[in-house]
């Protein structure tokens, strides 16, 4: 807990719980499992979260702890994807084929549905003060008028989403199995997306290419939140504070 000095009031290092009453009551199991407590206690989190940068500013968006933190993490990623495809369809690149239009419009719909679902579910289960706000995307690096730029970004976002959900499953508490199943219902759709946009961009066997599926084990990638958020950070204006998420 390298950042404890700066924010000693934020959480209990052994449980990951914050002082937010509604969260504590509703997610009374959040972060309180033995594995969660051990992981947080043993490995800490602040350094991992932001290895190169300065400490999180006070106004960083805090994902929170326990299962609600993981749900907020997923909500953040879905917000990013939904905003991306909304922009793609608002400003379609010239020469977008019917097939590409169909795929990208479907992806917009799916990601918007995921985003809206998480917003409703987190608000319902954890309360309005536990859910992260709407994030501000930063798409300066993307040329929406260029097919390659759009499709490369789509591939990167979809592969990242798959890896993120694959890595987050183990962070969900033993009492949060319904959330695990919910994440499973979404991750396979993200993987379907990833395969489709990879195929649009590169064809052949790229839908599950050796660059993303280990050819020796046949396993897709998984990533932990710190790596996922480091990759996503430059596409989101707000700083994301994941320091209270459960650790692997």
């Amino acid at each position: 807990m390298a950042d404890n000095k700066q924010k000693p009031e934020r959480s209990n290092p052994l449980t990951g719980n914050t002082n937010t009453i509604s969260r504590k009551n509703f997610f009374k199991y959040a972060g309180a499992s033995a594995a969660g407590a051990l992981a947080v206690g043993l490995y800490g989190c602040g350094d991992d979260n932001n290895p190169m940068g300065p400490p999180m500013s006070e106004d960083a968006v805090k994902l929170g702890s326990g299962d609600v933190g993981i749900l907020n993490y997923a909500y953040a990623l879905e917000q990013l994807e939904a905003a991306f495809y909304t922009e793609v369809m608002n400003t379609p690149y010239s020469g977008m084929t019917d097939e590409e239009k169909q795929v990208l419009e479907d992806l917009r719909k799916h990601e918007v549905a995921h985003r809206d679902f998480f917003k409703a579910a987190i608000s319902r289960d954890a309360g309005e003060d536990a859910i992260i706000p709407g994030l501000t995307p930063n798409f300066e690096a993307i040329d929406f008028s260029d097919r390659t730029s759009v499709l490369e970004t789509a591939v990167a976002f979809e592969d990242l989403g798959v890896s993120a959900y694959n890595g987050a499953g183990q962070l969900i508490s033993a009492d949060g199995i319904p959330y695990l199943v919910q994440a499973g219902k979404i991750v396979s759709v993200e993987a379907r997306h990833a395969a489709a946009v990879r195929d649009l961009l590169n064809g052949g066997a790229s839908f599950a290419g050796d660059d993303i599926v280990d050819p020796e084990t046949g396993l897709d990638r998984f990533l932990l939140p710190a790596d996922v958020l480091a990759a996503a950070a430059n596409f989101i204006e707000e700083e994301i504070d994941a320091s209270n998420l459960p650790s692997a």
Partner: peptide, 26 residues
């Protein structure tokens, strides 16, 4: 998923296979 969640390593590997099946299906 719920039946293998008792082992973080098995769960993660199962998820890593699951998403590959989804890529194939797509």
């Amino acid at each position: 998923a719920g039946n293998v969640a008792g082992s973080a390593a098995v769960l993660t590997a199962a998820l890593q296979i699951h998403s590959v099946e989804a890529r194939h299906a797509s």
